[in-house]
């Protein structure tokens, strides 16, 4: 009973995190939210996988967040908050609402198709997948795109952990997450490095 309550609490927190992830402009807040989402996912994954395997996913996720954070902090870019407008928040909030509604509608149906997973696990998973998809749809910022993909993968991992308990798959998914984080860091660096062509343009 207590575990079920905690699971639902985690789902609600994931939704709040989704709002922050979609509407937040500060990369530090977004990475912090992502780290929290990994913690929430860890709880939901422990519903079906052993503690050790879930911990591996949590550690891998936090390592991804750390690598992205360390890369981003070393880059000098225009403060993204400078261009922020109050009305910019409305659209992401609407999207978070859409994700919540879709999750509420789809979770019982999925529970009916795949019984035994548990409604909170499905709801948490769908919220993360939905948030990831929405994030991918509304931004061209590389960090936000990587966070969207990570969110999408995290949501998938939650539901997949309920049906597949292979250690190899868990390991490969952790490596995939880490690789995505490293690719994100690489692309952030590539984006920030002024190309020779651009430098020439600036000089002329």
């Amino acid at each position: 009973m207590v575990e079920a309550v905690i699971s639902w609490l985690v789902v609600i927190l994931i939704w709040f995190a989704a709002i922050f992830l979609l509407s937040g402009r500060d990369w530090r807040v977004q990475l912090a939210v992502m780290a929290f989402q990994y913690l929430a996912a860890f709880w939901l994954i422990t519903r079906h996988l052993p503690f050790a395997m879930a911990s591996a996913k949590l550690v891998a996720g936090w390592m991804v967040v750390a690598s992205l954070g360390m890369t981003r902090i070393s880059l000098i870019q225009v403060d993204e908050q400078a261009s922020f407008r109050a009305q910019d928040r409305f659209f992401p909030l609407t999207l978070a609402g859409v994700v919540a509604v879709v999750t509420a509608g789809a979770s019982p149906r999925i529970e009916a198709v795949i019984p035994g997973i548990g409604l909170p696990v499905i709801a948490g998973s769908l919220l993360l997948v939905g948030t990831g998809l929405m994030q991918l749809g509304i931004t061209s910022n590389i960090l936000r795109i990587i966070l969207g993909l990570l969110s999408l993968l995290m949501g998938f991992e939650i539901i997949y952990s309920a049906v597949e308990s292979s250690i190899l798959v868990a390991g490969l998914l952790a490596v995939t997450n880490l690789a995505l984080g490293l690719v994100g860091s690489y692309l952030l660096m590539a984006e920030a490095t002024p190309s020779s062509e651009l430098e020439e343009d600036l000089l002329t």
């Binding site: 798959v169 995939t176 651009l198």
Partner: peptide
């Protein structure tokens, strides 16, 4: 999973560090 990893490994091949990543690679 292995195809996905291979795809991610291709990214540094496509985008050198001195080139801004374009829409295609994303």
């Amino acid at each position: 999973l292995l195809l996905e990893m291979a795809a991610m490994l291709v990214v540094p091949l496509l985008v050198p560090l001195d080139q801004k990543p374009g829409r295609g690679v994303i």
